[in-house]
Design a protein around this nucleic acid. Structure first.
Length: 883
RNA sequence: GGGAGCUUAGCUCAGCUGGUUUAGAGCACCUGCCUUACAAGCAGGGGGUCACGAGUUCGAAUCUCUUAGCUCCCACCA
C-alpha cells in the first residue's frame, strides 16, 4: 500500500467516527463491569461551538476514552440546556423580524415557535462535537426541557415547597426593564460607569413649610427622590445627631420625610446624609425594613415613571434624570454636582441597566442546603481540581443567599403554583391535583377559577438535577423512591469537567440536589478548566473578533491537531492563552506519527535474518522505557495533569521512538530494507502501545494507524482492544542508555563543529566506566570504526577530549584539532568546575551543615566533591596533552 | 471594599513535603543540512541575578513578611 507523505485528516476522521457510531462503541448499558460515567455540562441549545466548548469537551473525551480503554463500562451522557433567557431572547428577536411581537401572541403560540426553533437549531452544537471526536453515548442525548426532565423539575418544586424550602416573598430583584424579567445576581454584569454625584438641598420642614435651612444629600439617581421615605445619617455623626427625628422636605414635591439614624451610612462619603429609597435600592430596602418605613415605588415595569412619582410621569428613567436635574437646578435645589465613577449593573442578556425592583418572586432557602453541600467538599467526598477552589467554594457556601428561581418568561418549566381567586396559592404537580388541594380550602372552587403562575423557573433549577435526571428523571422530588437500574449503576458519576465561573450556580447546586434526592454526591471529581483567551490574554469575544472558528480550525489542522494544541497548554484551573501555533504543533505531530508508520511499513520482515546486536539492544532499551512511561502516565493521570501526560508522550514518540529507536534499528536501503522478524514484531508492538497511549488525545489518527498495523476484522477498534503488555524496567540500564545518548550527541557535535562528514569514520578511546554492550550502538549511530577502552590518555597527538560524568572520552582528530580553541574550551570548563568545587567545599567545611543536614545530603555533597575533583584532574591532564 | 491566586528563558508553562536544581520542558530563535519516513523534517547550538526588598535556615525558585504589577471571585458607599 502506498501512503502519501503527508497525513490528511479529512480522509480519516469522518470515516472512523461513522465506524465508531456504527459499531456503537460509545453506547453503554449497565452490566457487571465497573462503570465510569460523566455527564456533559449541557451547552445552550442556542449555542454554537466555541473554543471553550472545544477545550472542555476534549478534556472530557480524553478522560472518557482512557476509562473505556481501561475496560470500564464507560458512559458519557450528552445533551443540551434549554437556556430560558438566551433562547427566549433569540426567538423573540426572530419573531420580531417577521413582524410578530411577543405580546401579540399567546403563550401556546409562542412556545410553538420556540419549539420549532429548537428543532431546527438545537442540535447544531452536538453535531459539531462529533467532528471533535467526542465519544458520547448519543442514544442518551438529553434535553433539560424534554417531558420527563420537565416533570422532574415540577416534582422537585412541589417537594421543596412541601418541605418548606421554597417560599414566595417580596424581594429586591434585579429587574431587566428591557427583557421584562427578573434576572439572577449571576446574570448581572457590573461595569464602571462615569456618572455624576448630585448634591441636593433637602430643606427642613416647619409644619410642612420650607425652613431656610437644609440638609445636603448626595445621590447619583435624582430621578428617584420622589420615592424617598427618609434621610439617614450615622448615629455616631456629631454633625447630625441632634437632627435625628426632625423632618425634611423632598425637593420639588415638598413631601415630608423623617431624618433617621443607621450604622449603614458612611460618615465621610458625600455629605454623610443618605436618602432612603426602599423601592429602588437594595440597601435602602433593608434600612427601610429595619426602621419600618413605607415603600414608595415610582417606576413601571418598563422603566418609566408612574403616577406615584407625581412629576415626570411616563418618562423613561434616564430621560427623567436629565429633566429633573434641570428642574432641580432651576428651583435652586441643586447645590453642586461632581463627576463620579461608580459600578452599575447591566443585564448580561440585553445590556440594559438593571433596576433593583421589589417584587413577589419564588425563592429556594439555601442555608441548610448550602451547609450540607459544603460538607461534601470539606470532607473530600467531592474533590475539586485544582484544590485552590475549595476556598472559593467555602466562601460562597457560607454566605449563600436565597435563590430567586422565578423568571418572567415563557420558555421553561412553568411554576406549578395555582392561585385561588382570593390570592391563596396551592402547589401541585398538575392542574387536577391543584384543584383538589384548592377545593380542600374552599370546595366551591372550580377548575376555571384557578390561575397558574405565569412565570417559569430559572434554568439552573432544571440543570441542578442533570446528573440524576439524565439517568432517572423520576427520582428528583422523590428521595424515598428506589433508584432505577440506570441511576443505581451510573450514579454518582466520576468526573465533572466544567468552568470555574459556574462552580456556584451549577456545581454547588448539583451537590445540593444530589444530597437532597439521592443522599449522595453527584460526582467524585470536579475538574475545573481555565478560560480560553487569545494570545494577548484577552477574553475571546465576537466584538473583538479574536475567537477562531473551531470548525474552520479542524478543517485546516484536523480534529486531532486541534485537540492536541489545546491539551498541550492546559493545566487545571489556569486560563489558556490560545495561539494557532500550538495547533500547528499538533498537526505536525500527527504528521510525524504518520511518517513513522510509513517508515516501519516500508520494511520487509524476514524470518531468516539474524537479529543484529544493535537492534537487540535498542529493543531491550525501548521496551524498558515504555514500561517506565506507562508508570509515569498513570501517575500523571491520577493527578489530572493532562498536558503533562501529552507532553511526555509527545517526547517519547518523537524523540525516543523516532529519533533514537527507529534510527538504530533502521535497515539499510542497500539490503532491500529487510529486517529480522524479532525486531520487526517488537517494533509493531511498541507502535501498538504508543498508539494506545496516544488514543485518548488523538483518537482519529491512532485508530487509522492501528487499523493498518495488522489485518483487522470489521468491528475491531483500538478503543476496545487490549493494551499491549509491558514488562519491567531497570533504572540503571535506562541511565546507561541516556549516557550513551549523551555520548553520541557529543560525537555528532564534534563532527559538526569540525566539519567532519558522516562518511569519515572516527576512533574513540574510553577511560572509565562505560557499558560495553552498548558499544555497537555508539559505533553505528556516531559513525565509529573502533572503540577502545584505555587506562591512560592516548599518546597520539591532537586528541579531542571530553567528559561525560566522570568518564573520559578521546577522539584523535589529527590536524583537524585546533589546539588554541581546545585550550580555551578546557580552561573554561576547568574554571567552572573549580568554582563548583569551591562552593561544595565551603558547604562541607561548615560545621553547622555537617551537624544538621541529614546524612544522605552530606553524602551527596561529598560525592559532588569527589566527582568535581576527578573532573578537574582529567581536565588538567587533557590540557597538558595539548601541544 | 473583602477574598483567592499568579509573577521562573522571547512565548506558554513544569519545578509537589526546602538539599543531585549555581533551575527544566515545549514552542520560538541561531547554525549546518532537501541524508530515498517526515523541510509539517534532520543534526547541532545559544538563551534565565526564579517580579522587588527583607527575614527564617547550615542551605530558599520553594517557607514568612513588605512592596509593585497582573488575573479571577464576591460586594451596588449614596
Amino acid at each position: 500500500m502506498e501512503l502519501p507523505a503527508i497525513y490528511d485528516p479529512s480522509v480519516t476522521e469522518g470515516k472512523w467516527y461513522s465506524y465508531w457510531l456504527k459499531h456503537r462503541f460509545f453506547h453503554s448499558i449497565p452490566d457487571q463491569r465497573p462503570k465510569y460515567s460523566v455527564v456533559i455540562p449541557p451547552p445552550n441549545v442556542t449555542g454554537v461551538l466555541h473554543m471553550g466548548h472545544m477545550l472542555n469537551n476534549t478534556i472530557q473525551d480524553v478522560l472518557v476514552r482512557r476509562a473505556r480503554m481501561q475496560g470500564k463500562n464507560t458512559c458519557w451522557v450528552p445533551g443540551t440546556d434549554h437556556a430560558s433567557i438566551a433562547t427566549e431572547a433569540k426567538v423573540v428577536a426572530l419573531l420580531k423580524k417577521k413582524g410578530i411581537h411577543k405580546s401579540d401572541i399567546t403563550r401556546e403560540e409562542f412556545l410553538q415557535h420556540a419549539w420549532k426553533w429548537k428543532e431546527k437549531h438545537g442540535n447544531i452544537i452536538l453535531e459539531q462535537l462529533k467532528k471533535l471526536g467526542a465519544s458520547c453515548d448519543w442514544d442518551r442525548t438529553a434535553f433539560t426541557m424534554n417531558p420527563a426532565m420537565s416533570r422532574a423539575v415540577v416534582d422537585t418544586f412541589v417537594f421543596l415547597y412541601n418541605q418548606g424550602l421554597i417560599y414566595r416573598g417580596v424581594r429586591m430583584v434585579n429587574w431587566d426593564p428591557q427583557g421584562g424579567t427578573a434576572v439572577s445576581d449571576e446574570e448581572v454584569i457590573h461595569r464602571e460607569v462615569k456618572e455624576k454625584l448630585y448634591y441636593l438641598k433637602y430643606y427642613f420642614s416647619r409644619n410642612g413649610k420650607r425652613d431656610n435651612k437644609y440638609l445636603s444629600v448626595a445621590t447619583t439617581r435624582p430621578e428617584t427622590i420622589m420615592a424617598d421615605v427618609a434621610v439617614c445619617v450615622n448615629p455616631q455623626d456629631e454633625r447630625y445627631a441632634h437632627l435625628v427625628g426632625e423632618k425634611v422636605l423632598i425637593p420639588l414635591i415638598d413631601k415630608e420625610i423623617p431624618i433617621i439614624a443607621d450604622d449603614y451610612v458612611t460618615m465621610d462619603f458625600g455629605t454623610g446624609c443618605l436618602k432612603i429609597t426602599p423601592a429602588h435600592d437594595p440597601n435602602d430596602y433593608e434600612i427601610g425594613l429595619r426602621h419600618k418605613l413605607p415603600v414608595v415605588d415610582i417606576l413601571n415595569l418598563d422603566g418609566t415613571l408612574n403616577a406615584d412619582a407625581r412629576i415626570l410621569v411616563g418618562k423613561d428613567r434616564f430621560e427623567a434624570r436629565r429633566k429633573i436635574r434641570l428642574m432641580l437646578q432651576q428651583d435652586g435645589f441643586l447645590e453642586k454636582e461632581e463627576p463620579y465613577v461608580t459600578q452599575v449593573g447591566f443585564s448580561e442578556r440585553t445590556d440594559a441597566v438593571i433596576e433593583p425592583r421589589l417584587s413577589l418572586q419564588w425563592f429556594v432557602k439555601l442555608d441548610i442546603l448550602a451547609a450540607r453541600a459544603l460538607k461534601y467538599v470539606e470532607d473530600g467526598h467531592v474533590r475539586l481540581i485544582p484544590d485552590k477552589y475549595r476556598n472559593t467554594y467555602r466562601h460562597w457556601m457560607e454566605t449563600a443567599r436565597d435563590w430567586c428561581i422565578s423568571r418572567q418568561l415563557w420558555w421553561g418549566q412553568q411554576i406549578p403554583a395555582w392561585y385561588l381567586p382570593d390570592g391563596e396559592v396551592v402547589v401541585a404537580p398538575n392542574a387536577e391535583e391543584a384543584l383538589a388541594l384548592a377545593q380542600k380550602k374552599n370546595f366551591a372552587i372550580k377548575a376555571e377559577d384557578l390561575k397558574q403562575d405565569p412565570d417559569v423557573v430559572d434554568t439552573w433549577f432544571s440543570s441542578w438535577l442533570w446528573p440524576i435526571s439524565v439517568f432517572d428523571p423520576e427520582k428528583p422530588g422523590h428521595p424515598d423512591k428506589t433508584p432505577n437500574r440506570e441511576l443505581a449503576y451510573y450514579y454518582p458519576t466520576d468526573d465533572l469537567v466544567t468552568a470555574p465561573d459556574i462552580l456556584f450556580f451549577w456545581v454547588a447546586r448539583m451537590i445540593m440536589a444530589g444530597d437532597l434526592f439521592c443522599g449522595q454526591k453527584p460526582f467524585t471529581n470536579v475538574y475545573l478548566t481555565g478560560m480560553v483567551r487569545d494570545k494577548m490574554g484577552r477574553k475571546m469575544s465576537k466584538s473583538l473578533g479574536n475567537s477562531p472558528d473551531p470548525i474552520g480550525l479542524m478543517n485546516v489542522y484536523g480534529a486531532d491537531g486541534v485537540r492536541m494544541g489545546l491539551m498541550l497548554c492546559t493545566s487545571a484551573g489556569n486560563d489558556i492563552l490560545f495561539d494557532e501555533t500550538q495547533v500547528e504543533q499538533g498537526r505536525n505531530f500527527c504528521n510525524k506519527i504518520w511518517n513513522a508508520y510509513r517508515l516501519v511499513r516500508s520494511w520487509q520482515r524476514d524470518p531468516y535474518l539474524p537479529v543484529e546486536e544493535t537492534s537487540r539492544q535498542a529493543v531491550r532499551w525501548f521496551s524498558q522505557l515504555l514500561a517506565l512511561t506507562r508508570e509515569e502516565v498513570e501517575d500523571l493521570f491520577s493527578k489530572y495533569r493532562l498536558s503533562e501526560v501529552l507532553m511526555l508522550l509527545y517526547k517519547r514518540f518523537w524523540d525516543d521512538f523516532c529519533s533514537w529507536y527507529l534510527e538504530i534499528i533502521k535497515p539499510s536501503a542497500d539490503a532491500g530494507k529487510r529486517i529480522d522478524a524479532t525486531t520487526y514484531d517488537a517494533t509493531l508492538g511498541f507502535f501498538d502501545l504508543l498508539l494506545h497511549l496516544l488514543h485518548p488525545f488523538m483518537p482519529f489518527i491512532t485508530e487509522e494507524l492501528w487499523q493498518n498495523l495488522k489485518d483487522r476484522k470489521e468491528g475491531e477498534s483500538i478503543m476496545v482492544s487490549p493494551v499491549p503488555e509491558t514488562g519491567t524496567y531497570n533504572a540503571a540500564e535506562l541511565e546507561d542508555f541516556s549516557r550513551l545518548q549523551e555520548l553520541i550527541t557529543a560525537i555528532r557535535g564534534v563532527r559538526q563543529n569540525k566539519q567532519i562528514s558522516r562518511q569519515t569514520e572516527l576512533k574513540l578511546y574510553i577511560r572509565g566506566y562505560f557499558p560495553d554492550h552498548l558499544s555497537v550502538v555508539v559505533m553505528r549511530m556516531a559513525g565509529l570504526n573502533q572503540i577502545m577502552k584505555v587506562t591512560q590518555a592516548p599518546g597520539e597527538g591532537n586528541v579531542y577530549a571530553f567528559l561525560i560524568g566522570t568518564t573520559e572520552f578521546f577522539i584523535p582528530l589529527g590536524h583537524l584539532l585546533n589546539t588554541e580553541e581546545e585550550r580555551t574550551k578546557l580552561n573554561g570548563e576547568l574554571a567552572y568546575y573549580r568554582k563548583f568545587l569551591a562552593a561544595v567545599e565551603k558547604k562541607l567545611s561548615n560545621e553547622n551543615f555537617l551537624q544538621r543536614a541529614p546524612g544522605e545530603v552530606v553524602a551527596t555533597e561529598r560525592k559532588k566533591r569527589s566527582d568535581a575533583m576527578a573532573k578537574i584532574a582529567a581536565l588538567k591532564q587533557q590540557l597538558s596533552l595539548l601541544q
